[in-house]
Every structure is written in structure tokens, then in C-alpha cells.
Design a protein around this nucleic acid. Structure first.
Length: 677
DNA sequence: TGTAACTCCCCTCCG
DNA sequence: GGGAGTTACA
């Protein structure tokens, strides 16, 4: 059944009882191996529902489960698969009562959590102060990092947010209030899903029950898990019972340090799980030898490298290309040309991807692709869920689901004409949104619907509209989630037309949301699904109706993890972009950026094009002089470039010393002469 | 005087 | 899209 596998892969698949660590290099058949192991476990008698497969995204989980199914096992649908957060959510709805969690909690995403922080920041008087206090996103980031790393607040601030060190007292105060507020409102944030899962797994009352649920636990992308997740894993497989844990990872591909992920989890696995078997997969089945050589050269310069050599198994001799472009426009042009040339050779658009460090790096290219009628789908960057009008609609649903959700109230009330933050706050006080769960939880909403409320004159009409919309959605039996959204849309349409531009496109987004909602049977499930598995691409929203259509893939490098394409185009490989100048604070951060480039390069099977613009007209931070030239990524020094076919821009030669001698600079010098007296 | 509304700027990566 | 700063409104 698994005769295609090499001996190391076979060993991993056939491994019996006890902990197993698979160190799997890029392109070494890791996904296939893990899928085959799942199939093999079932074949050897493990019931599918007793297998827990933890992956980095739901997409990865689906992919692995369906591959296992193709390997001959029919029952894989009952395997527990998903991200740590999604599985935590599921387990807590089932067993949370033991911890005092009612199963009707709602889940806050990162932005929601930050909004709660902002409310508290105001309430505690940190907004109107001469001295500046960390902003809501910073607070949320510090909080999450502290929790996920399991480190003390002061240590985290000292190490990662030294400029906030003077404010630690205030931060602590906000964090205490934040925790309290979440408990009052029956909401959990992403971190809580893990924290409570860990509590469930390690508590004497529930721990053994939980540990008995699963015979085998498999974790993919283990290099990108954090301390909290490692604790959960250990809690689920305590030393007292059978420790059937399989983890797969590659320390060279660890790129989620900002989520407190640590390669320590891989390195220390044998200590936490003694008697662990270790298997290394070092044969690369993906890339041609020149692409692999270039990738290896990049990662070889990392001082913190784990000993491992990837050996090519495929033929091919075309060197990867490094193309210096004059500017962003030429870069976009070069990418479009290269993409179409490959398309002419018979490589579908779908088999090609453009990868970049940050979601906005593809802005220019997207315009150019649209102009040339090259269809594309973009992954990464949570655009849809971040859009204001989508949040507006979801906030309405969340009020209905959880009337104590003050962030949603605050947002929705301010949609009304004449309602600003101050009036919204006053009304929320009148509705007693914030009085905690001491009394009947539904009352702020029923109060809003049934009792007269004091609002600014101009807002009376809006209040009436909102009342009507919320009131009509109250009866969930009569109206499924999609129907509720449709009703809310009649309220939101005029609001959107008044508040935002491009109203028509935004209304269409709401229709997409309804389509998405029609797959959920309940409002609660819809809201949870959306926060735990947000649409990861524009294509997700349009649905997959045009499967016959061909389109180019655009993706952040982070979202490209685990994927591969025939041809990969890496853009903006300039210093300041890769590494991002936001991430050059210390050596660890810089090394993570190096691994990021490594991940990008190793996605390619047959063709690899790396480009960077030599000039940015909208200059990136850190490049003080807008006329100065950007350098190629520091991870591509001369001896690495020997593995590339290096191409210079078509138009202008660039001086080696980087001095600005372009026509533009000459003009500036001329003008400077005129201004001189 | 307190609020709402408007303008300008700069944008990390994700569950 | 949102924060900070400014203007306009009641």
C-alpha cells in the first residue's frame, strides 16, 4: 500500500507505540508521510475518531485527511483534525462546563481583543494623557505574546517592547481588567482557547477523561508551535499513559516567532517525551538541483542551523534568476512577462505563484495584472475580515448572539447618524451592557428593543431602524443565519452608502457573507467558524465555481507554508523588505527572516525568479534618502548569488557605490543650484 | 465646551 | 482601516 515511500518514510509510517519525532526537510514528502501514517494507524485498528491530527490551518488538515482517504482508508472523515484553536474550541464546547465555561461563549479575534483593550485604555484614563501609552494593537500583541510564551510580563516587555518599559504598571492594570471583562462577557480570545484547553487537560478532575479520548496525536509544523501548545500536547499525553505522539517539523522553516512559536519545542521534544524515536527525511522530491543548491546556500549562512542536508532527487539544471529591476513598475512588468512566458510553455497560471513578505507588497502588481487581464487569487492578509462593513455586519450578529458583547454594541451604535463614541457610551451605560452576567444576560438587548432610550435628536431615526433589524432577527428558529444577514443588510445598505465609498462593492461583500452563512446551521457556529477559519483568499469568497478557470496565485510567504508550485516568483527581495525592517531588532528576528526567504525559495519545483526594485518612490521606512538605491536582501550576498543567474535592469546602469547618478538626481542637483543664493 | 466629522498619514506575518 | 490632529457644529 505504501510501496512508493522511501525507507525513512516507511519507518515513520510503520512506527508503532511511543513518541515519534520526524525532522522533515522542505519537499521531503512530509505531508504524504503523515497522511500515510494516519491511514496506516486506521488500517492497524485504531478507530478514526480516536486520532487527533493538529495542523497549522484547516486547509492543511483537509488536505491530509483526504490524502489518507485516497490511500485506501474510507473512514478518515471521523478523524479529529484542525488547528489547535479550532480543536480547543470544540473540546471546550463539549467539556468546558467543568471549568465553569458555558458552551455559549463567543470567540474574539485579534482585532476584537484589541478593541476591548482600547475600551479599557480609555476607561482607565490612558488615552487622554500627555505621555503616550501603548496603543491597542501593541497591548494586544504584548498580551498574546506573554500568554503564549508563558513568560512574565516584564520579561516580555524588556525583550520585545523595550520602549514600553516605563508603562509596565499601566499595562498590567489593563491586562487584569481585560481578563475580568472577558469573563464577565462570556467571550474567549484565541489565547483563552489554548489556556482553557491546557487547564482542561491538566486538571485532576478532567485530565484523564481528556487523555483517554485519543489514542494517537499527530502534530504537523511542530516548529511553529509555542510553549503553551507544547504544554497542551504534554497534558493530553501525560507520562502516566501511552504516549503516542507524532510530531513533524523542520527547524529551518520556523517562521512564526511573532506568535511566540519556538524551535525549542522540536529541540526539547526528546526530553519532554523520553524514549522518542527520531527519523530524518532528507531527500528532496520537489526542487531541481540548482534551486535546491541556491536554497541550501541561503540557509547555510544561518548560525543557528540544525544539522541536516537536503539531497536532490530530481533532474534539471536551469539556474534560478535574480533580477534587479529599476523600480516597482519594472518589477511588476518583469513578473507579468515571466508568468506569461511560462504560460506559453504550457505551465498553467495555477502552477505558478508570486510570493512576498507583506500583503501590501503585491498592490502594484495586482493593478498591473488586472490591466493585462491576468486572473489571480490572493492568499494571506485578512482583508475580508478586516473590512469595516464586514465587521459591522458581524457585530450585529454578535449582539444578537451575546448581548453582553460591548465591543460590538460600541461599533454598531456608532453606525447611526449623529452617534459618536460619547453618545454610544452613554447609551450602553443606560442599557447596562457592562453590568456583567449577574442578571439575565439577554436584558441589554430586550431593554434596547422594548424600552425608550435617550439618544441625540438626530439619531432617533437610526435607532428605530436598528431596533427593527435586530428585533426581526431575534427568532432564530424562524430565520437561519443567512436570513438574518439578509434582514440586517436592509438596515446596513443605507448606512454603508452614507459612510463608505465604493458602496456597491461593499454590499456585494455582504451578499458573499450570506452565502458563507448559508453553510452554517446556527448563528453561533457561523460566528465561531468565521473567527477560527477566516476566508484565507479572495477566491474563498467567490466560492470555487470556476474550477476550470486558470488563475495565478499571489500569497504572503507565511501563507505559502507547506505548499509548492512549478514556478515561483519572489518579489521585493530587497533589504528592508526581506528582512522586513520591522523585524531587524535582534539576531533571532533576523534569523527568522532568513528562514522566511528559505521557505519562499523552497516552494519552487522547476523555476525560480527572484526580483527586487532598486528604487522605491514611496520610500520604505529606514531608507532616509528617497533617491538612494535599495540593496538586494542581505541574505543574498555575493557567494550565494553564484547560485543565481543575475540580471541587471534593462534601462539604466547602477553605480557600484550606490551613489545617485540618475537623471532624476541630476535634476535635483540642478534645482538645488537654483535655490542656492 | 463637548461632540461629531473630516483630513492626513502610514501601513508585517496569522489562528 | 485607523490613529492623531483639526475643523465644524450645536
Amino acid at each position: 500500500m505504501f510501496e512508493d515511500l522511501n525507507p525513512e518514510q516507511q519507518a515513520a509510517v510503520n512506527h508503532g507505540e511511543g513518541p515519534l519525532l520526524i525532522v522533515a526537510g522542505a519537499g521531503s514528502g512530509k505531508t504524504m508521510t503523515l497522511a500515510a501514517r494516519v491511514a496506516s494507524l486506521i488500517e492497524r485498528g485504531t478507530r478514526p475518531e480516536r486520532i487527533l491530527l493538529l495542523t497549522f490551518s484547516r486547509r492543511a488538515s483537509r488536505e491530509m485527511v483526504s490524502r489518507a482517504a485516497r490511500l485506501g482508508t474510507s473512514d478518515t472523515g471521523r478523524v479529529w483534525g484542525g488547528t489547535f484553536h479550532a480543536v480547543g474550541n470544540r473540546l471546550l464546547r463539549l467539556h468546558g462546563l467543568a471549568l465553569g465555561l458555558t458552551p455559549d461563549f463567543t470567540v474574539l479575534d485579534q482585532a476584537d481583543g484589541a478593541d476591548v483593550m482600547n475600551l479599557l485604555r480609555d476607561e482607565h484614563g490612558y488615552s487622554a494623557r500627555a505621555r503616550r501609552f501603548p496603543r491597542k494593537d501593541t497591548l494586544a500583541a504584548i498580551y498574546s505574546r506573554t500568554v503564549n510564551a508563558g513568560e512574565r510580563l516584564t520579561d516580555v516587555v524588556k525583550r520585545h517592547y523595550p520602549w514600553c518599559l516605563d508603562e509596565v504598571e499601566g499595562i498590567r492594570e489593563i491586562f487584569r481588567a481585560y481578563t475580568e471583562r472577558k469573563r464577565q462577557q462570556h467571550v474567549l480570545d484565541y489565547d483563552d482557547l489554548l489556556l482553557f484547553w491546557k487547564a482542561l487537560a491538566t486538571s485532576p478532575a478532567t485530565g484523564s477523561q481528556l487523555a483517554q479520548m485519543f489514542e494517537h496525536i499527530l502534530v504537523d509544523e511542530y516548529q511553529d508551535t509555542n510553549a503553551l501548545q507544547a504544554d497542551i500536547l504534554e497534558g493530553m499525553r501525560p507520562a502516566a499513559g501511552p504516549r503516542n505522539v507524532t510530531v513533524v517539523g523542520d527547524d529551518a522553516q520556523s517562521i512564526y516567532g511573532f506568535r511566540a512559536a519556538t524551535v525549542k519545542n522540536i529541540l526539547e521534544f526528546p526530553e519532554r517525551f523520553p524514549d522518542a524515536t527520531m527519523i530524518k527525511l532528507e531527500r528532496n522530491y520537489r526542487s531541481t538541483p540548482p534551486i535546491l543548491a541556491a536554497s541550501n546556500a541561503v540557509i547555510a549562512l544561518s548560525p543557528q542551523r540544525h544539522e541536516k542536508t537536503l539531497r536532490p532527487t530530481r533532474p534539471g539544471e536551469t539556474l534560478p534568476i535574480l533580477r534587479a529591476c529599476l523600480d516597482e513598475a519594472e518589477q511588476s512588468d518583469a513578473v507579468c512577462r515571466a508568468v506569461l512566458e511560462h504560460r506559453e510553455e504550457g505551465i498553467l497560471l495555477k502552477a505558478q505563484a508570486v510570493l512576498f513578505r507583506a500583503a501590501y507588497h503585491s498592490d502594484h502588481l495586482e493593478v498591473e495584472l488586472a490591466r493585462r487581464n491576468i486572473p489571480f487569487v490572493k492568499y494571506g492578509g485578512l482583508k475580508f475580515m478586516e473590512a469595516a462593513h464586514v465587521k459591522d455586519a458581524l457585530s450585529c450578529l454578535r449582539i444578537l448572539e451575546n448581548p453582553l458583547d460591548e465591543v460590538s454594541w460600541f461599533r454598531v451604535l456608532q453606525l447611526l447618524d449623529g452617534m459618536g463614541p460619547a453618545s454610544a457610551r452613554r447609551l450602553m451605560e443606560e442599557l447596562e451592557v457592562r453590568r456583567g452576567d449577574a442578571v439575565d444576560a439577554a436584558s441589554p438587548l430586550t431593554r434596547f428593543l422594548d424600552e425608550p432610550v435617550a439618544v441625540p435628536k438626530g439619531a432617533a431615526e437610526g435607532i428605530r431602524e436598528l431596533r427593527g433589524a435586530l428585533g426581526d432577527c431575534l427568532d432564530t428558529d424562524a430565520l437561519p443565519p443567512a436570513g438574518q444577514l439578509a434582514r440586517l443588510r436592509t438596515f446596513l445598505e443605507p448606512v454603508i452608502a452614507r459612510k463608505y465609498e465604493a458602496a456597491a462593492a461593499r454590499v456585494r461583500d455582504l451578499e458573499q457573507l450570506e452565502l458563507l452563512a448559508s453553510e452554517s446551521s446556527s448563528r453561533r457556529e457561523f460566528l465561531a467558524d468565521l473567527t477560527l477559519d477566516p476566508p484565507s483568499s479572495t477566491g474563498d469568497l467567490a466560492g470555487p465555481p470556476h474550477l476550470d478557470e486558470d488563475y495565478l496565485i499571489l500569497s504572503t510567504i507565511h501563507s505559502a507554508k507547506g505548499l509548492e508550485w512549478d514556478v515561483v516568483h519572489v518579489i521585493h527581495a530587497a533589504d528592508g523588505m526581506i528582512p522586513s525592517d520591522m523585524s531587524t531588532g535582534d539576531d533571532d528576528e533576523i534569523e527568522e527572516e532568513r528562514r522566511l526567504l528559505y521557505v519562499a525559495l523552497t516552494r519552487a519545483r522547476d523555476g525560480l525568479h527572484v526580483t527586487y526594485p532598486q528604487r522605491y518612490y514611496r520610500r520604505p521606512k529606514g531608507l532616509e534618502d528617497p533617491h538612494s538605491y535599495s540593496q538586494p536582501s542581505r541574505f543574498l550576498p555575493d557567494d550565494v548569488l553564484e547560485h543565481f543567474d543575475v540580471l541587471r535592469p534593462r534601462v539604466v546602469a547602477v553605480p557600484d557605490d550606490g551613489a545617485p547618478v540618475t537623471a532624476a538626481a541630476d535634476v535635483d542637483a540642478f534645482l538645488a543650484g537654483l535655490w542656492a543664493d
